[in-house]
C-alpha cells in the first residue's frame, strides 16, 4: 500500500521542488564558478560566470602543504570520519537503548548530566581535555579525535539523545513479545531494537561522518604534523591574516571537499525505508 500522488499533483510537487532547489543551491554556484576564475577576476569582476576559465586552482590547491597533497588530507579525513561513525553507532545504540528501555538507579540524573555536557561550549572543556590527552601521550595522533566518540564524549551525546527519542517511539509490545519468546535483554537489543532502528542509524552515520569531516577546531588543536592533516586543517592553510590569502585554491578545494559527503549521503538516503515492524504490525 504505497501512497502515490496523481500525475497533476506530481507535476506541482516537481515544480515546487525545482524552484526551491534553485533558491537553495544558488549561493553555492557563486563559489563553484569563483573556483574557475583566475585570482585577478574573483573579486574585481561582478559577473557570476568566469571570463577566462581556469583549472589552476584545482591543480595548485591539490598540491597541499609541506610536501603532503590533498590526497593525504582526504585519506586522513576519511579514516577519521569512518572511525567516528563506528564509534558513534556503537555508543549511541548501547547507551540510547539503556536510557530508553531499561530501568535503573540514577537514570534521570545521568541522562540530565549527559544533556548538560552539551550545554558547555567546547571552547571551555577543550583545555582540560587537552591536558588529559597530552598526559596520555595522545597529542598528534588520531586518538583524541576518535576515542571520545567510542565512550560517548564530544559530539556523541547528540546521537545518544537521538537514539533515545527514536527507541522510545518503537512499540513496546515488541519487547513483551520478545521476552515471552525467551529473549534476554542483549538479544532484545540485537534482534529487535537494532534492526528496527535503521533510519536512526543512517541518520547517526551521516551526521557523525559529516561533523567529523567538517570539524576544524579539535583537529587543529590535536594534529600537528602535515602527514596527519585533514581536509579542514588543509583548507585553513589557504588563508592569511595579512590578506595574502589564496582564495581561488580555497574555493576549489572547498568544492572538492563536499563531494565525498554528498556521495555518501546520496548512497545512504536510499536506505531511508520503513522498519519491518512499523509497516505491518500494528493496526
Amino acid at each position: 500500500m504505497k501512497r502515490r500522488p496523481k500525475p497533476i499533483k506530481l507535476l506541482v510537487i516537481h515544480v515546487i521542488m525545482i524552484i526551491l532547489s534553485i533558491i537553495i543551491i544558488y549561493p553555492i554556484l557563486w563559489m563553484l564558478f569563483a573556483s574557475f576564475k583566475p585570482m585577478t577576476e574573483i573579486f574585481s569582476s561582478a559577473s557570476l560566470l568566469p571570463k577566462h576559465w581556469t583549472l589552476e586552482h584545482y591543480t595548485a590547491g591539490w598540491q597541499g602543504v609541506g610536501g603532503y597533497t590533498f590526497t593525504t588530507f582526504f585519506r586522513n579525513s576519511l579514516i577519521l570520519s569512518v572511525l567516528v561513525v563506528i564509534g558513534s553507532l556503537f555508543i549511541s545504540t548501547l547507551t540510547g537503548f539503556a536510557f530508553a528501555r531499561l530501568k535503573f538507579k540514577l537514570r534521570s540524573l545521568l541522562f540530565m548530566f549527559m544533556l548538560m555536557t552539551m550545554m558547555l561550549p567546547m571552547q571551555i572543556t577543550l583545555i582540560p581535555q587537552y591536558i588529559i590527552f597530552h598526559k596520555l601521550g595522545w597529542v598528534n595522533t588520531f586518538l583524541p579525535l576518535v576515542v571520545p566518540s567510542f565512550v560517548g564524549v564530544s559530539i556523541t551525546p547528540f546521537f545518544i539523545f537521538l537514539m533515545v527519542q527514536f527507541v522510545r517511539g518503537l512499540p513496546k509490545e515488541l519487547d513483551e513479545a520478545a521476552t515471552i519468546d525467551g529473549c534476554n535483554t542483549l538479544q532484545l537489543f540485537l534482534r529487535i531494537i537494532l534492526p528496527l532502528s535503521k533510519p536512526a542509524l543512517i541518520t547517526v552515520s551521516i551526521f557523525a561522518f559529516y561533523w567529523t569531516w567538517d570539524d576544524f577546531f579539535s583537529q587543529l588543536i590535536y594534529l600537528n604534523n602535515p602527514d596527519k592533516f585533514t581536509v579542514s586543517t588543509g583548507l585553513n592553510m589557504f588563508l592569511d591574516n595579512s590578506g595574502n590569502s589564496q582564495w581561488g585554491d580555497l574555493f576549489a578545494m572547498s568544492i572538492l571537499s563536499i563531494l565525498p559527503v554528498i556521495i555518501l549521503f546520496l548512497f545512504l538516503q536510499k536506505h531511508f525505508v520503513k522498519g519491518i515492524a512499523t509497516t505491518g504490525m500494528k493496526g
Partner: peptide
C-alpha cells in the same frame, strides 16, 4: 626539526592551548 603549522585562524588558540597544556 619537526614542523608545526596552521593558517592564521586558529594559530593562537593552538599555541595557547599547547603552552597551557605544557607542550
Amino acid at each position: 626539526v619537526t614542523p608545526q603549522f596552521t593558517g592564521w585562524d586558529g594559530y593562537w588558540s593552538k599555541l595557547s592551548t599547547q603552552t597551557g597544556g605544557g607542550n
